[in-house]
């Protein structure tokens, strides 16, 4: 691998790959420029706050995906984990238990789903791609059974909404929570032994295991983080929309994964980090906003969004040649 890098040091593709985080932030600035040029109102304080609020949902899920993708895996169970956790919390609240119990139940359930994902990956040695896809289907069925096909009961109190959209020091509460969790994530990944174990496991699991890292414990932790962050996003979305609904998680599968990938984290594991994922998160959110203001329908949005993700990964997400 090193030989490859040296052999093609001058190529611009390599330069981009080596500085993917920087490239992501430059692209973000360009994108914001385009957004403001298309619609000057995009730069207004109110709109930026609204975008930041939406970005915090994506960004919090991207925390979990960053941890998981750094180990070389992926979590495809986000949509129904998010939805089911939110429904459980809302139902718990509707049944007269307080907010702490409701949130505890929601996040606890999300973490439990994460642990279940980890069992498949770490102990049964099934690739997360298939295992979490199956978990997602299972959760979808269980959620439908739980609410018996009826729209979920939604008696979301106003203060649940305020806890998400309320203004503290000029920032929406959800964005503040994202900021705290983001700093925590960066510190854990860059400054703790656990963070180094995550990178080591993603780079070479066997080597990590031989150097004394319990890779199973690493998988367990990253999938629990991912499950819990899906649940937190579900609780925030519930407050934001003042209701829970089936399919509330559907938009949160590709978008956070795309945020992580275009933020420079390799799907093969071992390289990248959350600083890039933040740029990626803001990029995908601004992109969606631009597509919305351009009055492109859902179909066109999906096509353009998918196309741009492909272009961005082609720009700097490429793997080594087979002959290297």
């Amino acid at each position: 691998m090193n030989a490859t890098l040296q052999g093609r040091r001058s190529s611009p593709a390599l330069l981009i790959a080596e500085h993917s985080v920087l490239v992501a932030y430059i692209l973000l600035l360009l994108l914001v420029g385009v957004a403001i040029a298309l619609n000057p109102a995009f730069g207004s304080l109110g709109n930026l706050k609204a975008q930041l609020l939406i970005a915090s949902f994506v960004g919090i899920i991207a925390i979990g995906q960053t941890f998981v993708i750094l180990t070389g895996h992926i979590d495809l169970s986000v949509p129904w984990n998010l939805t089911f956790s939110a429904i459980l919390a809302a139902t718990c609240y509707a049944n007269g238990y307080g907010i702490p119990a409701a949130f505890g139940l929601g996040i606890g359930f999300g973490a439990l789903v994460g642990a279940f994902n980890a069992v498949g990956v770490a102990i049964f040695r099934v690739h997360s791609l298939v295992w979490t896809l199956a978990t997602n289907a299972l959760l979808q069925g269980l959620a439908l059974l739980y609410i018996n096909g009826q729209p979920p009961r939604s008696t979301i109190p106003p203060f649940w909404r305020d806890m998400v959209t309320g203004d503290v020091g000029g920032l929406p509460m959800a964005a503040l929570l994202w900021l705290v969790l983001a700093v925590l994530t960066i510190v854990v990944l860059k400054r703790t032994s656990f963070g180094r174990k995550v990178y080591a496991t993603g780079t070479n699991e066997t080597a990590a295991f031989l150097s004394g890292i319990d890779t199973r414990l690493v998988y367990l932790t990253v999938f629990i983080i991912s499950g819990a962050s899906s649940a937190v996003a579900g609780l925030l979305l519930t407050g934001y929309a003042s209701q829970t609904y089936l399919g509330m998680g559907n938009d949160y599968l590709l978008v956070p994964i795309a945020a992580v990938i275009i933020g420079g984290t390799s799907v093969l594991g071992g390289t990248g980090g959350y600083v890039g994922s933040i740029a990626g998160t803001l990029m995908v959110v601004v992109l969606q906003a631009v597509l919305s203001t351009a009055q492109i329908g859902q179909a066109g949005k999906n096509i353009i969004f998918g196309g741009i993700i492909l272009l961005l990964v082609l720009l700097y997400g490429r793997a080594a040649r087979v002959n290297d």
């Binding site: 992926i74 590709l254 795309a258 799907v267 999906n302 998918g306 990964v313 997400g317 490429r318 793997a319």
Partner: peptide, 14 residues
């Protein structure tokens, strides 16, 4: 040389 999962996840949307 992009991972199949990313390519097909994006083309799923397209």
């Amino acid at each position: 040389r992009i991972q199949p999962i990313i390519v097909t996840l994006a083309s799923l949307y397209i």
